[in-house]
Design a binder for these strands. Structure first.
Length: 256
DNA sequence: ATGTCTGTTGCAAACAGA
């Protein structure tokens, strides 16, 4: 089973790139974040042509997540448990083949001052509680998407962010470790512990050309799923395409 | 060198968010 996650920074602008990626990589599931459109505006037809159906949690202008799949999936959540009904469109969870797959777009935490950062930490705590609940129920799961956290100093280029940025603040990293300490496996680091690997390069200041990137897109695996981990690849080539997203896909392969 | 990009408002070009 192959599962890819990609913050596309507008599904409509990137529909062509996404369709090309599906054609080339043929993932079983593609988790999209920042689709930046309402559900009915999502360009589903472009992906149906490649044999994929879509489950979409959209929102006007900002945020928004979607799951593209080749087979039928069952939607288990359309927002993170514990969130209000009118919460921003940042989470969708589906079940496919006995596996729960959570697709998340974690708040950036740099806007809105202290309240904005507190909201990020609150969201991370809700995610931790949800993961703990799934473990209690002995479920097999993946929680993947844009975490907006660089877990360690090895996960960003020197000088790419100031020390007080919400993506690297100690509280953000502690909240990420709290997920790991539940017993989850960071798929990319499990197989590539010492490589310099980034998944995001800012559009500004020649970040891509200078390789001033961040690793903020992650796939966390529950214990039995981690035992099935085969390969993980960062599709860096997507960042070199015309009009790319500022993020690139991460592709996780599991043994059956 | 904070040097870019997307979507919104409102119908040009400024603003927010990332």
């Amino acid at each position: 089973m192959r599962i890819a996650t990609w913050n596309v920074n507008s599904a409509r602008t990137r529909a062509g790139l996404i369709a090309d990626f599906l054609k080339r990589e043929q993932p079983d599931l593609l988790l999209l974040q920042e689709i930046k459109c309402e559900t009915q505006q999502f360009p589903a037809a472009a992906f149906e042509a490649e044999g994929y159906r879509a489950e979409v949690v959209g929102q006007k202008a900002y945020n928004g997540v979607a799951v593209l799949s080749r087979g039928a999936v069952t939607v288990t959540h359309r927002r993170l448990p514990g969130e209000e009904e009118d919460a921003a469109a940042r989470f969708i969870e589906i079940e496919a083949g006995g596996l729960l797959v959570g697709n998340l777009y974690l708040p950036n935490g740099n806007s809105g001052g202290g309240d904005g950062f507190a909201a990020k930490l609150d969201w991370m705590e809700k995610l931790r509680r949800h993961a703990a609940s799934l473990l209690e129920h002995d479920r097999d799961f993946i929680l993947a998407g844009d975490y907006n956290v660089c877990p360690t100093d090895a996960d960003l280029a020197k000088g790419a962010l100031p020390a007080d940025d919400a993506l690297v603040r100690p509280e953000s990293r502690a909240a990420f470790r709290a997920l790991i300490w539940l017993g989850l496996t960071d798929a990319l680091r499990a197989l590539h512990p010492d490589e310099t690997l980034y998944t995001f390069w800012d559009y500004q200041a020649g970040a891509w050309q200078r390789d001033r990137g961040l690793r903020i897109d992650h796939a966390l695996l529950s214990p039995r799923v981690a035992e099935r981990l085969d390969t993980v690849r960062v599709a860096r080539e997507e960042r070199d395409k015309p009009q790319p997203s500022d993020h690139v896909p991460v592709i996780v392969s599991l043994r059956d």
